[in-house]
């Protein structure tokens, strides 16, 4: 009997979780991708600074699967107390039309828009193409092969945009960005479009050559790489948005004051020395400077979702039409 009551008290003590001020225990960041990827690295760098500003431990949990939908769902289903947050990549914008899940950016409250990793067109060091212009001409005339990371990914989006400029492409999917690069290094494909932070080392060693940046700003790590819009007619309108936005999101029903605390801490975290050093050395762009209020973030998400969903739908690669989810045309 004595043991039983001791046991009961023990269990009660463990179960009891006083609800004092937020946060009073560790916060979990769920990353819906495997460790080692860009999302994971950005999240870990962020978690270091974030944890100092929040005053509690911030632990990272990787829940990869189904293009990010597994981890996303986990945060959506978790208790809306602000202790479980999501670091999302671009796939959340197209999960509905691709039939991966019923979730989208609108199902979450944004805390902070983190970074964007600019897409860069790269070829092997022995490639016959030295400018993006030459590459595109070849794409239009005879067609080229490109490695990418699978249907719906940012690489795929790029390929569709190039096709709208007249390119003919044979796309070969690989499990991840690095694998796509390996295929290029092994001369199995003609080119690929990679994220800047991933491809940096190969540019420096000369194993890969960057022919263009697919964005409106020059690359931090190598300002000499031309913008695609300067090399190819008609690219400007297509390349004017971030394609790989990483964002920190919370469950929709988290109370407003908790959200405020999180937002404040996040803003301060990205002002820290360590974070700034990380950004400078990785070659990524910051998004929070451009989209800092909640309204700006939400409107970014909806226009992102709009453009991506309709682009993919019109290329015929989606499961359903954006109309079914009332996604407006861009």
């Amino acid at each position: 009997m004595k043991k039983l009551s001791l046991l009961l008290i023990f269990i009660l003590l463990l179960a009891g979780c006083s609800s004092q001020d937020f946060p009073n225990r560790s916060v979990q960041l769920i990353i819906p991708y495997s460790p080692g990827g860009t999302t994971d690295l950005v999240a870990r760098a962020f978690a270091e600074s974030f944890s100092k500003e929040l005053g509690v431990d911030v632990t990272i949990i990787n829940q990869p699967g189904a293009s990010g939908s597994v981890g996303t769902l986990a945060v959506h289903d978790a208790k809306p107390d602000g202790y479980t947050l999501l670091v999302s990549a671009d796939s959340l914008g197209i999960q509905r039309v691709m039939g991966l899940s019923t979730l989208s950016f609108g199902d979450f409250e944004p805390i902070l828009l983190l970074t964007n990793d600019p897409k860069v067109i790269v070829v092997g060091k022995d490639s016959p193409y030295t400018t993006a212009g030459e590459l595109f001409n070849a794409m239009r005339e005879k067609g080229l092969s490109m490695s990418y990371t699978g249907p719906g990914g940012s690489g795929h989006v790029q390929a569709l945009l190039y096709e709208s400029l007249g390119a003919k492409l044979t796309l070969t999917p690989f499990p991840g960005g690095l694998d796509a690069i390996v295929a290029l290094l092994g001369n199995q494909v003609d080119f690929t479009n990679s994220n800047a932070s991933v491809v940096r080392e190969y540019l420096e060693s000369g194993d890969l050559k960057a022919l263009a940046v697919c964005g409106s700003k020059p690359l931090q790590i190598d300002a000499s790489v031309p913008l695609l819009e300067d090399e190819v007619e008609g690219a400007k309108e297509l390349m004017d948005m971030p394609f790989t936005p990483l964002s920190l999101l919370a469950n929709k029903d988290v109370p407003e004051d908790v959200l405020e605390t999180l937002r404040e801490a996040a803003k301060r975290a990205v002002e820290s020395e360590e974070w700034k050093n990380y950004i400078a050395s990785s070659g990524q762009e910051t998004l929070y400077t451009e989209y800092s209020t909640v309204e700006e973030m939400k409107s970014f998400f909806s226009s992102f979702e709009s453009r991506m969903s309709w682009l993919l739908y019109e290329a015929g690669v989606t499961e359903s039409s954006p109309e079914e989810f009332s996604i407006p045309r861009p």
Binding site: P35, G36, D40, L41, R44, A45, R200, E201, Y202, E204, S205, D207, S281
Partner: peptide
């Protein structure tokens, strides 16, 4: 990622 986190840059 341990490398990257510690500021090392793995690559060729």
């Amino acid at each position: 990622s341990v490398f990257l986190v510690h500021g090392l840059r793995p690559g060729p």
